[in-house]
Simulated assay, not measured.
Amino acid sequence: MARDPHSPLPTHPDPPHAPATAPTENPALLSQRTALILFMALCAGIGIGVLTFLAKRSYPEAVIAGVLPAGACAMGLHNVVG
């Protein structure tokens, strides 16, 4: 049935139809920003740890020297990367 072109439009249009299927895609575990910050902090920590190990030949000192700056780098990059 065709609508008369001179008649007014209905005041309440039909509601939009719901999609037939719900999206099945799972959300990402980490955002791209978070992954980038963690990757850069990890690279900095590994680099500092390797350089410390080459200088002192001590695994515990290298681990401590790598972990602490990696955490500080992650916090600093969180403020910088926007």
Rank of each mutant, 00 (worst) to 15 (best):
G45A: 12
Y59T: 13
V63P: 07
L38H: 05
G45D: 03
P5E: 13
S7G: 14
R3G: 08
L51V: 06
T21K: 04
R57N: 15
P5G: 06
A28G: 09
G66A: 04
G49A: 10
Q32A: 14
V63F: 02
G82T: 11
A35G: 10
I46V: 15
P5N: 09
T21R: 10
G66Y: 01
A44Y: 04
H12W: 06
P60Y: 00
C43V: 12
G71W: 02
H12Y: 08
L42I: 03
M40A: 15
A72Y: 02
G47P: 05
A44H: 05
P8R: 07
P60C: 12
C73E: 01
R57L: 12
T11W: 03
N26V: 08
P13W: 00
V67C: 13
P8E: 09
A41W: 00
A70D: 06
G76N: 03
L42H: 11
P16L: 10
S7H: 08
I48P: 07
P8H: 04
L29K: 06
K56S: 15
L38P: 07
P5V: 05
I37P: 10
V50D: 01
L51Y: 05
P15V: 00
H17R: 06
I46W: 05
Y59R: 13
V80M: 04
A72N: 00
T52S: 04
N26T: 07
P23L: 02
D4C: 04
E25S: 11
A72V: 03
I46A: 14
G45M: 05
I46P: 01
V63N: 12
R3Q: 10
N26W: 06
A18Y: 05
P10S: 11
R57Q: 13
P16R: 03
E25D: 11
H12A: 15
A2S: 09
Y59V: 15
E25W: 00
L29F: 05
P8C: 11
G71C: 10
I64M: 05
G47M: 00
H12F: 13
S31C: 08
P13S: 08
M75F: 11
P23R: 04
L36T: 15
A41E: 00
L9R: 11
P69M: 01
P8Y: 01
L9Y: 07
G82A: 13
L42D: 04
G66Q: 07
L36Y: 02
T21Y: 09
H17A: 12
A22L: 15
D4Q: 05
V63T: 05
T21G: 03
C43L: 14
P60M: 09
V80Y: 02
M40C: 14
